[in-house]
């Protein structure tokens, strides 16, 4: 009978193991913020702790989104733009921070990423298929120059030197917000999680089974459900952002017009279909993915590597290029 008791205990153990780890689970919440979908996943042993952390993170994103909203007259960004050529604008530390990171990326990329691209962005409307005329574009191009953004950290001010200049932080703000949310979660005691704002993802820690987070990279020429993902990458403590010509675009006369505009020409860049960049901070991956997209595969890969980042580039012919640093964590899907 002793043996049977032992067997009974063993069976109970097996049964309990088959039910999985109930202690630490992934909790997920999604909210519409910053005109897009924000999704947060956290690993926690308590639903309450997870909810509290996620609510704080969503509040941080919401607050930051209000500061840098290009379309809201009340935002600090709009005030900076209104005061262009006239006076400095006093702003919050986050606004200074994100603009400073944008200017640094602009410098490092030789202007391939330029947050002062606002005047040319305003001329295009991809939803209404509005393509500006060459003269219209030429007229605003002189306004685009990141060197005319003056940041005074000590006095917490930003000044745009020329009237008509417009800062557009669309190429960095979502990544910065993902970092802000991740930092907020970490401060509230969450050790493992993932923040996803549109295509900008910041991971920290691992999943309950100690495996890294798996991120799917969207196929820029998806034809159906089965080929939605072109590659997958396993990340822990890293961020990834993707810039693609399929997000906001229209086709006219067999040419694809998309939202990734070259600051030098004012027209969409044509050397890539999509660019994913991997680094520690999502603000940087967000901005650098745009820069690499504008520069194209050759110069783009060099920029990413010079900045200590990794990149996956799908060029205009569909060929996939990647930096050697990610070969062990990147899997290209079959058939691609």
């Amino acid at each position: 009978m002793k043996y049977l008791s032992a067997l009974f205990i063993l069976l109970l153990l097996i049964t309990s193991l088959s039910c999985g780890d109930r202690k630490r689970s992934v909790y997920r919440k999604t909210m519409p913020l910053m005109d897009t979908i924000v999704s947060i996943s956290v690993v926690s042993g308590s639903k309450d702790e997870a909810e509290r952390g996620m609510d704080k993170a969503f509040a941080a994103i919401d607050r930051f989104g209000t500061l840098i909203n290009f379309f809201s007259e009340k935002s600090e960004l709009s005030e900076i733009n209104r005061n262009a050529g006239t006076r400095e604008t006093r702003v919050s530390p986050e606004t200074i921070d994100v603009i400073e990171m944008a200017v640094i990326t602009a410098e490092k990329s030789g202007g391939a990423f330029d947050p002062s691209i606002g005047p040319v962005v305003k001329l295009w409307d991809f939803l209404k298929r509005k393509k500006p005329g060459g003269e219209e574009i030429r007229r605003v191009l002189p306004l685009i120059d990141f060197r005319n953004i003056v940041i005074d950290r000590q006095n917490s001010t930003v000044f745009l030197k020329n009237k008509g200049m417009l800062l557009d932080l669309g190429g960095i703000a979502k990544g910065y917000a993902a970092d802000l949310a991740a930092d907020t979660l970490i401060k509230s005691g969450i050790r493992d999680g993932l923040v996803s704002i549109a295509g900008d993802i910041r991971t920290f820690g691992v999943k309950p089974d100690n495996s890294p987070w798996t991120i799917g990279i969207k196929n820029p020429r998806q034809t159906g459900e089965k080929d939605e993902i072109i590659a997958r990458i396993r990340l822990s403590g890293k961020a990834i952002s993707t810039a693609g010509d399929y997000e906001r675009f229209f086709i006219d006369d067999n040419r694809r017009y998309h939202h990734l505009l070259d600051p030098e020409t004012g027209y969409p860049a044509g050397l890539c279909r999509s660019v994913s960049v991997i680094a520690g901070k999502a603000a940087l991956t967000d901005a650098v993915s745009t820069a690499v997209f504008i520069l194209g595969p050759e110069k783009g890969l060099k920029l990413a590597q010079d900045m200590g980042m990794d990149a996956i580039i799908i060029d205009s012919s569909g060929t996939i290029h990647s930096t050697p640093g990610i070969k062990d964590i990147l899997s290209i899907e079959k058939g691609n």
Partner: peptide
């Protein structure tokens, strides 16, 4: 659309 648990992908970039 919350993904079915069959998938091993935690998030999609792009």
């Amino acid at each position: 659309v919350e993904p079915g648990r069959k998938t091993d992908i935690d998030a999609i970039t792009g």
